[in-house]
Design a protein around this nucleic acid. Structure first.
Lengths: 145, 145
DNA sequence: TCTTGAACCTCTAGTCACTATAGGGACTAC
DNA sequence: GTAGTCCCTATAGTGACTAGAGGTTCAAGA
């Protein structure tokens, strides 16, 4: 059974304009249209879009998602390329997890100090102003290189 | 001692155009200028910019950083808001780490199978296409509301 | 069958947080 | 005094959406 873009949006929790945007940039295939030129989707579109949404939630850029989709599309072709791509993504994930773990510890320390019922001697500002120990930059946190 | 924008950039590891951008949006105060209209900074600018950089690295949006700076300006009421912000970030970081761990396992399985010379039957898509358990959306992850 | 109103269409422009480029002027070391 | 590096403004581009205008299609009820 096929359904409208609004129904696809409800099923995947991806907004309608975002779906059209994904089609425009070639991340989702252009679906067939009704007589009156309205898009008609099926379950395969929903599966692909769910994948995209989930990957975006994990912080993957669109380019990286394109690679992941391509990797999945030709499962029996050139294991070498697939393997290398997967390894690269694993390394990227490890970097992210490491970074998030560091950030988490720092925020937890902040909360612990704030929450001990002390008179407000919150040191977040001081903590954050301390420039000593993190050489990454925000724009790089979620990039795929 | 005062110094140039390039020197400030080196000291804080924030790029020169980004510093000018922060000034433009009112996050950094406009510094005094030299005879030839070049910006001259001092240690207080460096401290504030270090704070901003670190907060950005922790995932705070510019609007949230503005709030943090304002809170810092009146320290009596600051702790509650900061604590709450930090807690929100920790919860989000935990969600991300959990997701990344799942994806990592799936990619690792792919690599393992490819390495054994088997035909790749990557299940990355199936794993991620499972739409069951996360209702947040990427754009909202770090918002301050 | 007709009508109404929600959902759909395209196209353009706006958002955030930068980043890059063009076309110059200032400063420093020799 | 000149070479070379740094700095200036202004504008436009990036990624990944998001919002709006202005018009069309579809499904449900009278």
């Amino acid at each position: 059974m096929d359904f409208s873009i609004g129904e696809l949006a409800r099923r995947t929790r991806v907004k309608v304009p975002t779906i059209r945007y994904y089609e425009q940039i070639g991340l989702l295939p252009s679906p067939p249209r009704s007589e009156g030129q309205q898009r008609r989707y099926d379950a395969s579109h929903a599966a692909r879009l769910n994948f995209i949404r989930h990957a975006r939630e994990l912080g993957f850029e669109i380019g990286a998602i394109r690679e992941l989709l391509a990797m999945n599309a030709k499962p029996d072709q050139s294991c070498v390329g697939v393997d290398e791509m997967a390894r690269r993504h694993i390394a990227e994930i490890d970097r992210r997890i490491a970074h998030l773990t560091t950030l988490r510890a720092e925020l937890q320390r902040t909360v612990d100090e704030c929450g001990r019922g002390r008179v407000c001697e919150c040191r977040v500002i001081e903590t954050l102003a301390d420039s000593g120990h993190d050489h990454s930059r925000p724009a790089e946190l979620w990039s795929r290189r």
